[in-house]
Computed example of a mutant assay.
Amino acid sequence: MGKMAAAVGSVATLAAEPGEDAFRKLFRFYRQSRPGTADLGAVIDFSAPRGTEPGARKVVRSQLSVSSVSDHDAHRAGLQPVSKWQAYGLQGYPGFIFIPNPFLPGYQWHWVKQCLKLYSQKPNVCNLDKHMTQEETQDLWEQSKEFLRNKEVNKRRPRSLLEKLRWVTLGYHYNWDSKVCRVPCKFHCLHF
């Protein structure tokens, strides 16, 4: 119980320090925790009824335009009809919408694969670019797929480039060091 109390205090301290990058500090806090030991009390649970969790009272139902996507188009993309989607937002964060699993059975894996195949390609920026040339990171999926098909699990084997991939920036290529965006477009960051 003492560890949990210390962790709660640590999260509060992280948010209170002025001039610090709160995202980076929180990321490090959760990353350094051993599996199953991180205090998740500050994490918003969209599945919890309002009022039972600390962050749940910030969760609000979002209304979606059912006519914006036809049922036929949704089905072609591997999605349930929009009328069946549940959408949530957060008070004070206009434009943020969370939609839990709008996919038809089996299509979630399809879109995960598509994201890894397509979004990891150039001109999108990823965490590997800082350590490798553009030619080495040109097509991570093709370079890694045979390696990943090998079912042999061996901790000593080197990881494929796809296994080393941690994030890809789509659109606004945000430089986390300088806090500057470049190449504006309509998307933002996709983290793995």
Rank of each mutant, 00 (worst) to 15 (best):
A15M: 11
V168C: 01
N175A: 12
S62A: 11
F96H: 07
Q134C: 09
M1K: 02
L40Q: 09
P102E: 13
P158Y: 11
G51H: 03
A48H: 04
F23V: 00
E163S: 02
V66D: 15
E163P: 01
W109I: 09
H131G: 05
N127T: 05
V66F: 13
L14R: 07
E135A: 07
V168A: 01
A77T: 04
T13R: 09
F27D: 08
C181S: 14
Y174V: 02
L64P: 08
F187R: 07
R157V: 05
E20C: 05
S178E: 13
H75M: 12
V59T: 10
F103R: 03
G92Y: 04
K113S: 12
F192N: 00
R28I: 01
R61K: 09
L14T: 03
T133D: 14
G9H: 13
Y30H: 06
K58H: 10
R34Y: 01
V153N: 04
N154G: 09
K151M: 04
F23I: 00
A48V: 04
L90Q: 02
K122I: 01
Q32T: 00
E53S: 10
A56Q: 01
H188S: 09
M4A: 12
S33P: 04
L170T: 05
R24C: 08
L116M: 10
P102H: 00
E53T: 14
A74G: 14
A16M: 08
Q86I: 06
T37C: 06
